[in-house]
């Protein structure tokens, strides 16, 4: 299903069945034809039930409404947090200028606290990258639903045949894109200390 070129259309399936019939032993053709008819009837029943199941799961609605809505909502989250973060930093820059004017211990305290706010504002970058990963996953699901519905000859919207960015691959320098995985989950992430130790091994 990943590769649209490998998805079989109805015409191709008919061709394959015809090819099988052509290759059958003519001597036993009638008997084999009966078996084949039964198999095809079973296959047709399976496809019919699959289509029914997909219809009942409202895959079309998922594809045309829910997934685009979800990605739009997530994009809005990134936009809103970016705007809020920029406002916070503008306020911090003003406070920092005042801290310089105030000077002394009070100025130093203000400056130290402002630094902590700058550091905390890094959350926007991390959450933005995490949300981008989720959006890519949704796009991949959308792509797979489209291909499935197309293969079953069901009505689908326009399909973008460009396969969405893979969510995860084995990291390798031979494929630099595989090294783009974004922030790791805290329990799986390599810490700064681990990275420092790793770098020290090269010295």
């Amino acid at each position: 299903m990943n590769n649209p070129e490998k998805s079989y259309q109805r015409g191709q399936v008919v061709q394959i069945i015809q090819s099988v019939i052509d290759k059958m032993d003519k001597g036993q053709a009638d008997q084999q034809l009966d078996v084949l008819k039964t198999e095809i009837a079973t296959l047709a029943e399976t496809i019919y039930r699959l289509k029914l199941d997909i219809t009942q799961t409202e895959a079309g609605q998922l594809q045309h409404e829910k997934i685009p809505d979800a990605t739009e909502e997530l994009d809005a989250v990134v936009e809103a947090t970016a705007e809020a973060t920029n406002n916070i930093m503008s306020a911090c820059e003003t406070i920092e200028n005042l801290a310089d004017k105030i000077g002394g211990d009070d100025g130093m305290i203000l400056s130290t606290e402002v630094t902590k706010v700058y550091e905390a504002c890094g959350f926007q970058d991390i959450t933005g990258q995490r949300i981008t990963k989720v959006v890519n996953t949704l796009k991949e699901i959308d792509f797979k639903i489209s291909m499935l519905m197309q293969a079953l000859d069901m009505q689908v919207g326009p399909i973008d045949h460009k396969k969405p960015e893979a969510v995860s691959q084995e990291p390798s320098t031979e494929n630099p894109d595989s090294l783009l995985n974004g922030p790791q989950m805290p329990d799986a992430a390599v810490s700064q200390d681990d990275i420092d130790k790793l770098l020290a091994e090269f010295d």
């Binding site: 990291p171 320098t173 090294l179 995985n181 700064q192 990275i195 790793l198 770098l199 090269f202």
Partner: peptide, 20 residues
């Protein structure tokens, strides 16, 4: 945010001076 070991090793091999 790329913190996998493979990333750090690749960057070091490419000549990075440090990694945060």
């Amino acid at each position: 945010a790329e913190s996998k070991t493979e990333n750090v090793v690749a960057a070091k091999q490419a000549g990075v001076n440090n990694y945060i």
